[in-house]
Design a protein around this nucleic acid. Sequence first.
DNA 1: CCGTCTATTCAGAAAATTCTGAACAACCAG
DNA 2: CTGGTTGTTCAGAATTTTCTGAATAGACGG
Lengths: 172, 172
Amino acid sequence: MDPDTRSEFVESWGSMGVMWGINRSMARIHALLLATREPLGLEEITEELGMSRGNASMCLKDLRHWGVVRRVNLTGERRDFYIAEDDPWSMLFRIATQRKKREFDPAVTALQKVLATTGEEDDLVRERLEDLEEMLRAMDRLLQRFLANEGASRGMLKFLSAQVPYRSKKGE
Amino acid sequence: MDPDTRSEFVESWGSMGVMWGINRSMARIHALLLATREPLGLEEITEELGMSRGNASMCLKDLRHWGVVRRVNLTGERRDFYIAEDDPWSMLFRIATQRKKREFDPAVTALQKVLATTGEEDDLVRERLEDLEEMLRAMDRLLQRFLANEGASRGMLKFLSAQVPYRSKKGE
DNA sequence: CCGTCTATTCAGAAAATTCTGAACAACCAG
DNA sequence: CTGGTTGTTCAGAATTTTCTGAATAGACGG
């Protein structure tokens, strides 16, 4: 892959990272590893992306924690090297699972707690909050099912995507 | 609803807002409107939440743009008043639709562009990127279907949530 | 033990995001 | 037109997030 194309990919993946709740530096490192066959050391990464050793080190720690990057030892090399996990599906599941636990579940719990301590005096407001809770509960169940069985979910997604030829993304 | 409970809800909804890509002030205003039967004016909102008129005005503008808050005119009142849309499902669809368009679609396009300009020289990397693109395309189709027919999707979510009694959120 | 090489940490710097409040605009009544 | 009321905007302040680089720690060979 030529350097310009690679760096274009690195930057666009960096922007998308935000959508996954991953910051720009982390996503750029991830992209670089995805686009590189050989394991890379800290040195190569900082040089290629123009970031500090400290930042790269912390990002790699987080990326490993998310389970999307792996540290490998090269024989004859004292340094650590890193490669991207190459199954994007498993990456998606890991990230979705962790974000659900960290962000979604606590919010549902908070809403349920509020409902538990809310009286019956205001029907309109109570109904609104109950509808909200019902929706979050539905999403929760969907996520649970989806995340509980990676193989099945993967198949379902592939099936859906295969059904109709891919068209431009105007379907809103 | 008593003031403490309400403010607890306002704050927890504020935290959750981040997950939807909505900032804290916006989510707090939204929560306050959700938890209030009567339409509120700018004045009441700024006073209750302790924020500036300017910020509240901008947040309300954005909330209306997201389609989750509506401006109403009260007879005999010169000021503008605001109420929350009370269908959370439609709120979910509006937000999901807009975020897909704003964040997801451009990233997919960028990846496709990179693939289009990438040669065949590196099989491993090319295959990684193709897998990634396949996954994003699958998600794209799923989102298109889900967002294309609000009624059907709503029914599906409700069905899933009704199937099994709700248990604690430990299913990871 | 020392010197070298590398990874990690974290206080403070830099950057990005969010918020404020004063200025302005729009409207209305008198 | 004037004075009063309310909504909006936006430059800069405040806050939050991210990044840097120097300090530190660990590991290894000699």
